[in-house]
Amino acid sequence: MSEATGESLVLTERHAGYRVLVLNRPDRLNAFTEPLHLALRDALSDAAADPECRALILTGAGRGFCAGQDLSARNFAPDVEPDLSRTLEAFYNPLVRQIRDLPMPLICAVNGVAAGAGASLAFHGDLVLAARSAKFLQAFAKLGLIPDAGGTWLLPRLAGRARARGMALLAEPITAEQAEAWGMIWRVIDDADLMAEAHRLAAQLAQAPTYGLALIRRAFDASETNDLDAQLQVESDLQGEAGRSPDYREGVAAFLEKRPARFTGRKR
């Protein structure tokens, strides 16, 4: 049972244990404007503050996930020198940091084009599902720009150096099947089944030890820049935190008693 709230720039559907956030500018393929940034950040903050929300799905209304920056907001006068650094520092960078710090896993259900910062947004998901018709596009080179919203950090790690540079320099779309074959996303799903699979995974994650899942993300993120010794220390520190959670005790008890675990998802 779900409850849809508000015809706004980001729609929120509340389900048992998880939420669905829907980017809601379908006439512009859910391209980013400053109000959309703020609405998404508010929706993420609200979900993060809800102890009953233990997983998130992010998707787009209409026929696309997110087309990146809305260029209609970039029609500068000839004598105006744009300051895109301000846009990144004020909007995109805080959004990326907020997503990476979520206390629950994020499923991105890519239901069409994910371009520019929209592709980066999708790739920041913990689990990325893509409709078979979906495409990912790094369009920045067509505008004389570089990938942002973490794109230059994500792409080489997801696709490898050669493929990342090819995607960024040639600005050619890749299919959902290519993205799956290259290890950039979790799974390709038939279009008609995309949201059903996203809901299935979210319901599964909502019953999992949420705090431990957030620590898994922290560990993997740290491994991107650590050597082995540093990562062993990260594992030691985070495992210590995980072991102090009630879900660890519950998991051990459930194993010994041969019953399903009843996780709360809480730190303490």
Rank of each mutant, 00 (worst) to 15 (best):
S2I: 09
A4C: 08
A4D: 00
G6V: 12
R14M: 00
N24Q: 03
P26C: 11
D27N: 13
D27W: 11
L29P: 03
N30E: 15
A31F: 01
T33V: 12
T33E: 13
E34W: 04
P35L: 07
D42L: 09
D46M: 05
D46P: 00
A49C: 09
A49N: 08
D50L: 13
D50A: 15
E52P: 02
C53Q: 03
L56P: 09
R63T: 15
C66A: 14
A67Y: 14
Q69E: 12
Q69W: 14
S72Q: 15
A73H: 14
N75E: 03
F76D: 10
F76E: 08
A77H: 11
A77Y: 02
P78D: 03
E81A: 13
L84T: 02
L84K: 01
L84M: 07
S85C: 05
T87H: 11
L88N: 15
E89C: 10
F91P: 01
F91Q: 07
F91R: 08
R97Y: 06
Q98W: 00
I99W: 07
L102S: 09
P105M: 13
C108D: 05
A117M: 10
F123Q: 04
G125A: 05
L129M: 06
A130G: 03
A130M: 10
R132A: 15
K135L: 00
F136Q: 03
Q138N: 12
A141D: 03
G144Y: 01
G144D: 08
P147G: 07
P147S: 13
A149G: 03
G151Q: 06
W153G: 15
L155A: 12
R157G: 11
G166N: 11
G166L: 11
M167D: 08
L170C: 06
L170W: 05
P173H: 05
P173V: 02
T175Q: 08
A176S: 15
A176P: 05
A179L: 01
E180L: 02
A181Q: 13
M184I: 10
I189G: 09
D190F: 08
L194R: 06
M195S: 08
E197D: 04
A198F: 12
L201T: 05
A202Q: 11
Q204Y: 06
Q204W: 06
Q207A: 14
A208F: 15
A208L: 09
P209H: 09
Y211S: 04
G212Y: 02
G212P: 01
L215N: 12
D221W: 10
A222E: 06
S223N: 07
S223C: 11
E224H: 13
N226Y: 09
L228A: 10
A230F: 06
S236L: 09
D237P: 04
D237M: 06
L238W: 04
G240P: 00
G240L: 04
E241P: 02
A242C: 00
D247M: 00
Y248D: 03
Y248M: 11
A254M: 05
F255K: 02
F255G: 00
E257H: 13
R266F: 02
R268Y: 02
